[in-house]
């Protein structure tokens, strides 16, 4: 589904990613771990098409096609979803309206007619249950005045409604207490399927107790320096990023 080859990216003059190679197949969950400043979030942003990053080398294929030439909205319509580390507040736009606009944008892209208001309401109410969200929050402005936990649950609600092929979770666990973390993880787990892949970016192993990955990669200095199974996450938890060999640490 996703094939990243020798990806280099920088912000301004500063190189952040220095040759990432990663293959993700449908049905897999990959965790990207690494110390602060290792480039984890940059990788998620570059994949979602955020402005401000220059890809200087390498390529990314998504479903066999070049991803990097696509605008963020086309990537979204083609099935890529980024759950934000810091979801943006949009006062004046209700959650419901926003979700419907996004949902219909995706349908239009697939040549499908817009969903009826009634059907959509049914759909989002059902999905709201998945993340244990009070349906009243659907009528509130997007993320405006939401607590940290509510914002993250709202991200997962959007994920559940938009049903992407590839979900990128950027530090979704940051700022969550354990109850909120469990709810978010349950929401993601419910979305796992043979057809769908996830790339989970996290600093802490904690999240991976609840979203159990198939593969764990350690990012350092803008490169993947180690890859392994879920046990690698446990090892990191125990020994910290200090377990990285000197040659693996960013130069």
């Amino acid at each position: 589904m996703l094939e990243i080859k020798n990806l280099h990216a920088s912000v301004g003059d500063k190189p952040i990613l220095n040759g990432i190679d990663l293959k993700v197949k449908a049905g897999e969950v990959h965790a990207i771990m690494g110390p602060n400043g290792s480039g984890k979030s940059t990788l998620a942003h570059v994949l979602s098409g955020r402005e401000g990053y220059a890809v200087t080398q390498g390529s990314v294929l998504y479903q066999g096609k070049d991803l990097l030439g696509l605008t963020p909205e086309i990537r979204a319509r083609e099935g890529i979803f980024l759950a934000f580390q810091y979801p943006v507040e949009i006062p004046g736009v209700t959650n419901k309206y926003f979700l419907k606009a996004a949902y219909n944008a995706l349908r239009k892209h697939r040549g499908q007619p817009e969903i009826s208001a009634g059907d959509f309401l049914k759909l989002i109410k059902e999905k709201a249950k998945l993340v244990q969200m009070d349906p009243a929050m659907l009528n509130r402005a997007v993320n405006a005045g939401f607590s940290g936990g509510e914002k993250k649950r709202n991200e997962i609600l959007q994920l559940a409604v938009l049903e992407p092929k590839l979900g990128l979770l950027d530090e979704t666990d940051s700022g969550l207490d354990i109850d909120a973390l469990k709810i978010v993880a349950q929401g993601v787990n419910a979305m796992r399927s043979d057809q769908r892949a996830f790339v989970v970016v996290t600093h802490y192993q904690r999240l991976l107790d609840y979203i159990v990955p198939d593969f764990v990669h350690v990012l350092s200095g803008g490169r993947i320096v180690r890859s392994g199974g879920k046990e690698l996450a446990h090892q990191l938890e125990k020994e910290g990023y200090a377990l990285l060999q000197p040659e693996e640490v960013a130069k």
């Binding site: 979602s48 098409g49 605008t71 979803f81 943006v88 949009i90 736009v93 996004a102 944008a105």
Partner: peptide
């Protein structure tokens, strides 16, 4: 960017905001 990352076009995102 948030709106576009959910599939809205740039023009639609501007109008909505």
């Amino acid at each position: 960017f948030y709106l576009r990352s959910r599939g809205l076009s740039l023009a639609a995102a501007r109008s909505l905001l």
